[in-house]
Simulated scan of single mutants.
Amino acid sequence: MFPIRDHNPSQSRPVVVPALIVANVAIFLLTLPLDQTSARLWTELALYPAAVMQGDLLWGLLTHMFLHAGLLHLAGNMLFLWIFGDNLEDQFGRLGFLLFYIACGLAAAGAQIAAEPDPGVPMVGASGAIAGVMGGYLLLFPRARVDVLVIVVVLVRVIALPAWLMLLGWFGLQLAAGYAMSGAGGGVAYWAHAGGFAAGVVLTLARFLWLGGPAFWTRTHGQPPHPPSRFAPSRIPPVRRP
Rank of each mutant, 00 (worst) to 15 (best):
R5N: 05
P9G: 10
S12F: 12
R13D: 07
P18T: 11
I21W: 09
V25D: 04
A26V: 15
I27C: 03
L29H: 01
L30A: 15
L30D: 07
L30G: 09
L32E: 06
P33V: 15
Q36A: 13
S38G: 09
A39I: 14
R40F: 01
W42D: 10
W42R: 15
W42T: 04
T43A: 14
L47Y: 08
P49Y: 11
A50P: 00
A50D: 15
A50R: 05
V52I: 14
V52R: 10
M53Y: 01
M53G: 12
G55D: 03
L57C: 02
L58M: 15
L58I: 14
G60F: 14
G60Y: 12
T63Q: 03
M65A: 12
L67I: 06
A69R: 13
L71C: 00
L72W: 09
H73I: 05
L74C: 04
L74Q: 09
L74N: 02
N77I: 04
N77F: 01
M78P: 04
M78Q: 15
F80K: 13
F80W: 12
L81Q: 02
W82Y: 14
N87L: 05
L88V: 06
E89F: 03
Q91Y: 03
G93K: 01
L95E: 02
F97Q: 02
L98D: 01
I102T: 14
L106S: 12
A107H: 03
A109W: 03
Q112P: 00
Q112S: 01
I113C: 01
A115W: 14
E116F: 00
P117T: 06
D118S: 13
M123L: 15
V124P: 05
A126Y: 05
S127C: 02
G128H: 00
A129L: 11
A129C: 06
A129Q: 10
I130T: 02
G132A: 10
V133K: 04
G135H: 08
Y137S: 14
Y137N: 13
L139M: 13
A144V: 04
R145H: 03
D147T: 15
V150D: 03
V154N: 12
L155M: 08
P162Q: 05
A163I: 01
M166R: 07
L168P: 03
L168K: 09
G169E: 13
G172V: 04
Q174H: 04
A176D: 06
A176Y: 12
M181A: 14
G183T: 13
V188W: 11
Y190A: 09
Y190D: 12
W191S: 06
W191D: 08
A194C: 08
G196I: 00
G200L: 02
V201D: 02
V201W: 04
V201F: 00
V202H: 00
L203R: 09
L203C: 07
T204P: 06
L205V: 15
A206V: 11
A206G: 07
R207A: 10
F208G: 01
L209H: 03
W210R: 05
W210D: 05
L211H: 05
L211N: 12
G212Y: 00
P214H: 01
T218K: 12
T220Q: 06
T220W: 08
H221G: 07
P225C: 11
H226G: 07
H226D: 07
P228Y: 10
P228V: 12
S229F: 03
R230Y: 03
F231D: 07
F231A: 10
A232M: 11
P233L: 07
R235P: 00
R235H: 11
R235D: 12
I236N: 09
I236D: 11
P238A: 01
R240H: 07
R241M: 09
